[in-house]
């Protein structure tokens, strides 16, 4: 990055991505010909029935899964090679779908939050960075020394979120980040993400079954089914005038509380 120049907005794009899983008897086209762009400063929602390939798309974007076809571009360059991967990983973080099992059972919360700070060589007082990150997600005191089995599901989810946020990424990919939380906590987390988005321009890819959350958080959304994008548009329109049957089904299934 040259001095004085306006830093370019971080972007993560998937071009024409396909990934098929083959095993003995089954062939599952988990992702087929998908184009997607996650940009700094924008927030994108991703909805779709269970098993439609959302998590797989995320792994492709993160480079943990290789696409059969297509490519992933980070800031316009293909996501290959050590240096490029390292830069991308520092700028793009993610919250996995199953956060509890993404925590090392042998290590304390503090150790696991310090790990990315150390590995990416981030400067500053790591202890206070870790504490800030935990406070952000509502884990105020007494969590530093705990291990995964001493956390509730929702607490583990928020530790995973704090770990993703502690390095101040430019883009956050969140897979079902609010699914295990009670309503007040869910709202707190959504508020936090909204604030990070509005204040710091954090780019978001937010996967959720919770259309209300997506509606609150995201300007645009993609609807996914059988590995393909079946509908896409601003959330304000998409959920009020769903065109594709999959979208209609998802919208119709939103439970209405009795008035």
């Amino acid at each position: 990055m040259s001095v004085g120049a306006e830093p370019e907005a971080t972007s993560l794009r998937g071009i024409d991505l396909s990934r098929t899983f083959r095993s003995r008897s089954r062939v599952v086209a988990a992702v087929e010909d998908v184009d997607i762009a996650v940009l700094e400063g924008e927030s994108l929602g991703l909805v779709g029935p269970s098993g439609s390939g959302k998590s797989t798309l995320l792994s492709l974007l993160l480079g943990t899964e290789r696409p059969d076809r297509g490519e992933v571009l980070f800031n316009g360059a293909p996501l290959v090679g050590r240096q490029q991967l390292r830069e991308a990983r520092q700028a793009v973080q993610f919250i996995p779908q199953d956060p509890a099992s993404s925590l090392d059972p042998r290590r304390t919360v503090e150790h696991q939050l310090r790990e990315p700070l150390r590995r990416f060589g981030i400067e500053g007082d790591h202890k206070s960075l870790v504490q800030d990150a935990l406070e952000q997600v509502g884990l105020v005191t007494g969590y530093l020394g705990r291990r995964a089995h001493e956390l509730s599901g929702g607490q583990a989810q928020r530790v995973a979120m704090a770990r993703a946020l502690v390095t101040r990424p430019r883009i956050l990919l969140a897979d079902e980040a609010v699914s295990g939380l009670d309503l007040p906590l869910r709202n707190q987390v959504l508020d936090l993400l909204k604030q990070l988005h509005a204040r710091d321009g954090l780019g978001l890819l937010f996967i959720s079954h919770d259309l209300t959350a997506i509606h609150q958080l995201c300007q645009r959304a993609l609807v996914f089914d059988h590995g393909r994008v079946v509908e896409e548009g601003p959330t304000s329109e998409l959920f009020y005038r769903p065109a594709h049957p999959t979208t209609q089904e998802l919208v119709d299934a939103i439970p209405l509380l009795p008035a």
Binding site: R86, R89, Q90, Q93, S101, S102, P105, E115, A148
Partner: peptide
Amino acid sequence: ARPYVRSLPQLGVSRAR
């Protein structure tokens, strides 16, 4: 193959480490 190990590369931890 455990999830917590698979998530480590994303945190910048090298393969050897």
